[in-house]
Design a protein around this nucleic acid. Structure first.
Lengths: 147, 147
DNA sequence: CAAGATTGAGAGTTCAATCTTC
DNA sequence: GAAGATTGAACTCTCAATCTTG
């Protein structure tokens, strides 16, 4: 069942490829995650920061957060700005290191994170129900082959 | 009210989260596409616009382009601003409809698009080589189940 | 000088409002 | 009024430069 791939380098604008359908699927999925979180008033980056703070169960420095979210520090500066404006986190000084600023989650932030996690669980439930185990492991295999 | 029960959210998403690995894989893949296009001086949105113009083989209005890329019209206004600054497209008036502005690809834009397509083909080659047909069709199945 | 965070500029995206033209 | 495009504001992200502190 392999009679595609006729001209490898010749045809430029002949779209076929699974690679782009995977990309498209990811966009769709990401959209669903965004919608789910949006219904509780959170964005994906905001939810990610709150989740890290909840799972650490302690304030984290902006540098640590940037590392965990795999983004640049200046990004975290602005993201925490918005979270602070929303009242979901609070900047606290680090007595150990006067250069450092830590983000501490507020009660409101904790509640938002829990609400977001709830929505994400629901989404995951629906997703899992519509996919059988064989396909699931095939995807896992394909994904790890990607790195 | 909110007794944070760690076992509730933490253990639930730990063992079984294909949804998130798919999301992660998409990020990785998207990063590779970005890198490939960046090597010829293009971003993904810019390449997409150029490709649409090449495949249409005629100028397209900004509204048409926004529709094809599934984005908002105001987005296309700014994107075409940047493409015009790069000398890759040119705004031309539509004699049929004085409200409308069309984007016409330049020779330089055509060359850039071809270079980008070349890089993407190479990427696709490498990807296809590392995926067998069974896994490929599993992905297709999973993707259609997603909508 | 290193490591923390911040600022400024720019790319990309969305939405709401506006302006011109049909 | 409805459909073209544009502008302004907001969010997310990156990079380069800067400022403070170790």
């Amino acid at each position: 069942m392999n009679d595609r791939d006729k001209t490898a380098t010749a045809t430029k604008s002949a779209p076929d490829r699974t690679i782009f359908s995977l990309l498209h699927a990811a966009r769709v999925l990401e959209g669903k995650v965004e919608t789910a979180l949006d219904s509780v008033g959170l964005s994906v980056p905001k939810y990610s920061v709150l989740s890290e703070l909840v799972s650490a169960d302690a304030p984290l420095s902006l540098g640590e957060l940037a590392g965990k979210l795999s983004c640049v520090k200046s990004n975290m500066t602005q993201l925490v700005d918005r979270l602070e404006a929303d009242g979901l986190v609070r900047r606290v000084d680090d007595p150990k290191d006067r250069r450092s600023v830590k983000a501490a989650i507020t009660e409101e932030g904790r509640a938002k994170q829990a609400a977001g996690a709830e929505k994400l669980d629901e989404l995951h439930e629906r997703f899992s129900a519509s996919v059988d185990d064989n396909d699931r492991s095939a995807v896992q295999r394909l994904l790890t082959a990607l790195e």
